[in-house]
């Protein structure tokens, strides 16, 4: 397949899933004629009709609540939340219902929902449009949480998420929507697995979503300084692919976790704890975190100072190697 953007990778993945299974329906605000504010669903309503690509009222709790009902009737709804910061009105339905209905029914009820959330900053947006709230959902048992970083995974992982009988929160890095890449012939491993994108021997960079590209750039720059950095794309935040993370850290002895989300109780904290518990004797240095500061997401004129970048990643690499 030719090179395509991350956004179009999701579009083609959605289209494939809808062609394969007539029970797949899309729900969200402005996803019909407009194709969504990021045009991810562009052309789908025209081809699949208004009953399968549903322009909903402007109410996130209503979208999630009715999607639950559709799932109970046997549909596989794919819900689009317009921006990360708009998901909170739906939080109750996601945490109290979507995540728990299977356990509450002792397995009689499945919740094959996908909740798509464009996330992260770096696009100069106004408030509530640049958040990274994945830790809330990763903390919630009953949900699966994934984040894609490239067009190939975007195309295949959205189909894997739709095929799963479990609810999946699907994070899309909005500032990478227009990045291009090849889409291969099949998925790289099952949903829930990480991928080593660049092998290295000195330090493991563990990242997901928009920070994968940043880490690949950092590894490239470090190579010029004679340092060999391994880049692991976590891809799945719940469950974490512990085996892949631990295998990488055992090889390098050093780990730096990178995400846009604030570090306090973020994914980095969980990964640091896991690595400390499971690979303590392999560590040459403490697990370090590079993330957003523990403040509300700042105004866009200073967002670059909030967001981890190549230099902040390399600074952490220096500190790790200095141990």
């Amino acid at each position: 397949m030719a090179a395509t953007t991350l956004a179009k990778g999701i579009t083609t993945g959605l289209r494939a899933a809808m062609e394969k299974d007539p029970k797949v329906v899309l729900m969200g605000e402005d996803i019909g004629k407009l194709g969504g504010v990021f045009r991810v669903t562009e052309g789908l309503q025209k081809d699949f009709g208004e009953d399968r690509v549903i322009d909903t009222p402007l109410a996130e709790a209503g979208i999630l609540g009715t999607a639950i009902g559709m799932a109970l009737r046997g549909y596989r709804p794919v819900v689009e939340i317009q921006f990360d910061g708009f998901v909170y009105p739906a939080f109750d339905h996601i945490v109290s219902q979507v995540a728990k209905l299977r356990a509450r029914s002792l397995g009689y009820v499945a919740m094959p929902l996908v909740i798509r959330i464009p996330f992260g900053g770096g696009i100069g947006a106004v408030e509530h449009h640049s958040e990274s709230n994945e830790a809330y959902f990763a903390h919630t048992a009953g949900l699966r949480v994934v984040a894609v970083s490239n067009p190939h995974d975007a195309h295949w992982m959205i189909q894997q998420a739709i095929a799963s009988d479990d609810p999946v929160v699907f994070y899309e890095p909005k500032r990478r929507y227009w990045d291009k890449g090849e889409v291969g012939d099949g998925p790289d491993g099952a949903l829930g697995t990480a991928r080593v994108l660049r092998e290295g021997t000195d330090v493991s960079l563990l990242a997901y979503g928009p920070m994968v590209k940043t880490c690949l750039q950092a590894a490239e720059a470090a190579q010029e300084e004679g340092r060999s950095l391994e880049v692991v794309d976590l891809r799945s935040l719940s469950p974490l692919d512990g085996e892949a993370v631990l295998a990488s850290v055992r090889r390098t002895g050093r780990a730096v976790v990178v995400h846009e989300a604030s570090t306090f109780l973020g994914l980095g904290a969980e990964i640091a704890a896991m690595v400390t518990e499971e690979a303590f004797h392999h560590l040459e240095a403490p697990v370090l975190r590079v993330g957003g500061y523990n403040v509300p997401y700042p105004p866009s004129r200073i967002e670059e100072e909030f967001l981890p970048d190549l230099d902040r990643v390399l600074d952490a690499v220096d500190r790790s190697l200095a141990y």
Partner: peptide, 10 residues
């Protein structure tokens, strides 16, 4: 009430 409405949409 929302679950019921979604079910009815189905």
């Amino acid at each position: 009430t929302l679950h019921a409405t979604g079910y009815a949409m189905g």
